[in-house]
């Protein structure tokens, strides 16, 4: 039987279809790996309720295991505990920035109307003079920002707690 560590290693080779520099482990989407009733069970959780990538992630995980000779596996989707950007790994945040997406920064309670926007440094030039263009970006997990120093428009992986 393959070791559990091996399964986790293989998970590090499965990439998020929408942010292809992040693995599903970096993203914190893979919650658990277990061997029960002669089969591997991979537990995953969605980033957002309507995240269209979940089905694809599920297929990619099973495909990766199959390529490596592991046929007896299933993926289970759980909602609790709910995903948070706190689960993004440190290496994941670094990879995001190198890819041109600003990683999440600590934010005040989102329910406060017209609250100070968080300072999101530009992933290109590191300037803190940036502004939010839209709270909603190219995917549910991102907001749209622009740097006022180098004028680069960029995605911000918004904080979800």
């Amino acid at each position: 039987m393959v070791a559990k560590e091996r399964i986790w290693e293989l998970m590090e080779e499965v990439f998020d279809p929408e942010v292809p520099v992040l693995t599903v482990v970096d993203l914190g989407v893979v919650r658990d790996v277990n061997f029960e009733n002669d089969s591997w069970k991979i537990t995953i959780t969605p980033t957002y309720s309507g995240c269209p990538a979940m089905k694809r992630i599920e297929d990619d995980i099973l495909e990766k295991l199959k390529e490596n000779g592991i046929e007896n596996a299933s993926v289970e989707l759980v909602l609790s505990p709910a995903w948070t950007t706190d689960w993004l790994s440190e290496s994941g945040k670094k990879k995001l920035k190198e890819y041109g997406i600003a990683p999440p920064v600590a934010e005040v309670d989102k329910s406060v109307l017209f609250a100070e926007r968080p300072i999101v440094p530009c992933p290109k030039c590191n300037s803190k003079r940036t502004k939010m263009i839209s709270q909603f970006g190219s995917t549910a997990c991102k907001a749209h920002y622009q740097c006022e120093e180098c004028l680069e428009p960029f995605d911000y992986f918004k904080c979800l707690k």
Binding site: P46, V78, L79, S80, P81, A82, W83, T84, K161
Partner: peptide, 8 residues
């Protein structure tokens, strides 16, 4: 669980 997820 659904509420905790959706509330965010």
């Amino acid at each position: 669980a659904i509420a905790a997820k959706s509330l965010k």
